[in-house]
């Protein structure tokens, strides 16, 4: 009871990376709270799936395995999680801020009347006092111990907000792929497996949405694993500017990323967006071209090894976290980087 739960997302019988990252984070939170870590897996053909999650420090794995549970649809997965949570009363529930997590999380929070915070970039345990109304309607200080701090950039990334839900359980949060680090705790970790009677949790009337057709393609690029990233922002000026970045990336064997401003302007594919609402990256070298450095972007790249900022505005906020700053325009600097890289790599 009152443990930390992670909803683990599945593609077939493979657990998503983001879910394993959350198991690692969940383990740390559970240790701080002195409770256990439990995982929930809902799908079809899940024999042995627990082996993928237990090494991350999961004490108990709840498995719902039946026909019709893969691919994911909203109602059956919601019922499995909601009805399990009514029995188990978790204090924390973490989900990936993926298409599935953002479809499921809100339904679960609505059904349980609990608070949910989207796209958190940090999760911490803390204690605080807050003003609440007492029985007579007077405002008094109330102390809350061991609460989940759900921390996320807000308002277009101009501020960082800490959200708490002191009076409702579970405290729910979604986190994007790559934000937390996945680390195996112990290959031989001992966890219990609970295979649930699916019909007891999911009424047959839930199977109302049919997936007629489904295409999942391997990502066209590997931003998350790239050692070098060349990223462009609004200062790149247009799709032609991005062609320059692709040229540089080709030379350096790098991937091309972008800020939200460049994506919103339609200059580059949405799936190359780096930041809180895009991909979080930790490359060896991050070359920020014409990126001003809104918090929502910085949240997704600040842990890069070396940051090089190319910007015509010496006051650009990103320069504060850069190791090298080149004051200049993209059209001027990027071709020179290509030229001198070619010259010196011969």
């Amino acid at each position: 009871m009152n443990n930390v739960f992670v909803y683990c997302e599945l593609e077939g019988n493979k657990v998503a990376d983001v879910s394993l990252e959350l198991c690692t984070k969940g383990r740390k939170l559970a240790n701080q709270l002195g409770v256990q870590l439990e995982a929930v897996l809902v799908g079809t053909g899940l024999d042995g799936v627990e082996k993928q999650v237990i090494p991350f420090g999961v004490d108990r794995v709840h498995i719902f395995d039946a026909e019709g549970l893969f691919p994911y649809t909203s109602l059956p997965h919601t019922s499995a999680v909601v009805n399990l949570f009514k029995e188990e009363k978790p204090q924390i529930c973490l989900l990936g801020a993926t298409v599935i997590g953002r479809d499921l999380g809100p339904r679960v929070s609505s059904a349980l009347h609990s608070g949910l915070t989207a796209d958190c970039t940090q999760l911490e345990i803390g204690s605080f006092d807050m003003k609440v109304k007492d029985a007579e309607g007077n405002m008094v200080d109330k102390h809350y111990e061991d609460q989940l701090y759900q921390i996320r950039p807000a308002f277009g990334g101009s501020i960082i907000a800490t959200i708490v839900n002191p009076e409702h359980r579970p405290q729910m949060a979604t986190v994007r792929d790559g934000v937390m680090k996945k680390e195996i705790l112990d290959e031989n970790y001992k966890g219990e497996v609970v295979k649930h009677d699916v019909a007891k949790y999911i009424p047959t009337t839930d199977y109302v949405v049919k997936v007629l057709d489904r295409h999942v393609e391997k990502a066209k690029h590997n931003l998350k694993g790239a050692p070098i990233i060349v990223a462009g922002g609004y200062g790149v000026g247009g799709p032609e500017g991005f062609n320059l970045l692709f040229d540089l990336a080709k030379e350096l064997h790098a991937e091309v990323g972008a800020s939200r401003a460049a994506v919103d302007a339609g200059w580059i594919d949405h799936d190359r967006q780096i930041g809180q609402t895009g991909t979080t990256v930790r490359p060896k070298v991050y070359i920020a071209c014409g990126i001003s450095g809104a918090i929502q972007h910085v949240a997704g790249m600040k842990d890069s090894g070396i940051i090089i900022s190319i910007n015509s505005d010496p006051q650009a906020p990103i320069n504060q976290i850069a190791d090298y700053i080149i004051n200049g325009t993209i059209e001027e600097v990027v071709p020179k980087l290509i030229k001198y890289y070619k010259k010196n790599s011969k």
Partner: peptide, 12 residues
């Protein structure tokens, strides 16, 4: 259920 406990602007 959710409360904003703190808001801070970012100083790099």
């Amino acid at each position: 259920p959710t409360n904003v406990k703190a808001v801070k602007s970012i100083v790099f």
